[in-house]
Design a protein around this nucleic acid. Structure first.
Lengths: 236, 236
DNA sequence: CCCTGTGAAATCCTTCACAGCC
DNA sequence: GGCTGTGAAGGATTTCACAGGG
């Protein structure tokens, strides 16, 4: 289908190489656009979008330019059109079926969280390793046994799973998920997961986030003290 | 105290300018070292630490080099010593008092999460805007009213707070927290917060993480299809 | 000889600044 | 005249590769 191009090295027509940093911001833009649309705004300039997202406007324009030329010079971006284009780029014009493993405090909170459906996801199953919990009703789902993992993944065509088990169980669960065909994992367990190539893992870790805050907090305090002791060393 | 140095521009003796990317990884190293220490390991090479953290060993060495020369050539790092040095650098040799605002599903899960105390944090109060929840016992804490925010922050010397309210309430809560003297905020609400300079905000957003996974997942699927249609376009 | 610590190269990301279009 | 889209500059981060100490 594709005809030959003179310089052979790079792969493609439109060059679908969107930087990872940009991809991580597309969901933020998507949410802001949804908010603007709800408030009846029809178009928005890069400055307005920047204000709504906390991103600098040049960066925002560059990010959007990777998706194509969806703006109009002198006017800005059509809110609804851009919203759709970003949703399409991310792949959330349809809902993805998601499975949650580990129905403790956190897993339960996640399963109750209402924001999924409006953001491109639908929780289709809750699994827990504790046989005593199996069968328990939670919202409109029932907790399933880990034994049913393969059949659920197959039946619901699940490719994205959330792990909310204790850290000690996480790697075992990942191995079973991967074996069942899951290829994207969001990990809340505080442990490093190893997966075969082709499987993506993202990690959310509360303690890490707090520790990063603590680091800066400590410097703030120190800075104050230092400033009081010597006026030559200034820690901002 | 500090004597003059010839080139005046940069500020300090040891140069306390640790890159942000490095700071974000220190907690990962800290956790890995705690794990290794628990398993009785006394020293660890950068390769071993790299394996335990999922970070490449050159990066790890460079990261550690910003803290000082804590390794021994030909041997590696003393696990316990390095663990302490990192904890000190992060500022978690003592516990930080933390306050949680918004005791819904998520806030409740966070307040029940046991991993805080071992990682440098102690939850000292739970606040909720709903008067009906005030007074409710949760673990060994009782939910307090938002009216008590100032006195709690002052009494417990809180500088770090977690926001787990609905998005619509988040900015209002932030304003009150900042007014009360809180200078670091971990935000779970899906909204962009604006704070005065000197206040740090970090954001944890479930939907964003899932959407980033969805983006890559979509490409995997697409790649498969393209590969089947044309053997010239290869999407890895 | 093994392993750290680190300049230098390579890569990735952000910001600037402005040409070009509406 | 206002605002997008984007080369080019400037920073930040990662990786390489190796000098040098134990």
């Amino acid at each position: 289908m594709t005809h030959m191009r003179p310089s052979a090295t790079p792969p493609d027509d439109v060059d679908r190489g969107i930087p990872e940093a940009t991809i991580a911001r597309l969901p933020i833009y998507l949410r802001a656009l949804t908010g603007l649309a709800e408030r009846g705004m029809r178009t928005a300039s890069s400055e307005q979008l920047a204000a709504a997202t906390g991103v600098n406007s040049a960066k925002l324009r560059k990010d959007l330019s990777y998706l194509g030329s969806y703006g109009t010079r002198g006017v800005g971006y059509d809110v609804e059109y851009l919203r759709y284009q970003i949703a399409r780029e991310i792949g959330v014009t349809e809902d993805w079926p998601v499975l949650i493993v580990g129905i403790g405090n956190l897993g339960q909170a996640l399963s109750n969280y209402g924001g999924f459906s409006s953001r491109g996801f639908r929780i289709v199953a809750l699994l827990d390793g504790d046989p005593a919990r199996v069968g328990e009703q939670l919202g409109d789902l029932v907790i399933s046994s880990m034994d049913d993992l393969d059949s659920i993944v197959a039946r619901e065509a699940v490719s994205i799973a959330v792990i909310a088990t204790p850290g000690s169980a996480a790697q075992g669960v990942v191995d079973r998920l991967v074996a069942a065909g899951v290829t994207s994992i969001l990990n809340f367990a505080p442990s490093v997961l190893t997966v075969p190539p082709g499987v993506d893992v993202r990690k959310v870790d509360l303690s890490i986030e707090l520790q990063i805050l603590a680091y800066h907090e400590q410097r703030k305090a120190h800075g104050g003290t230092q400033l009081a002791v010597s006026d030559e060393v200034v820690t901002l």
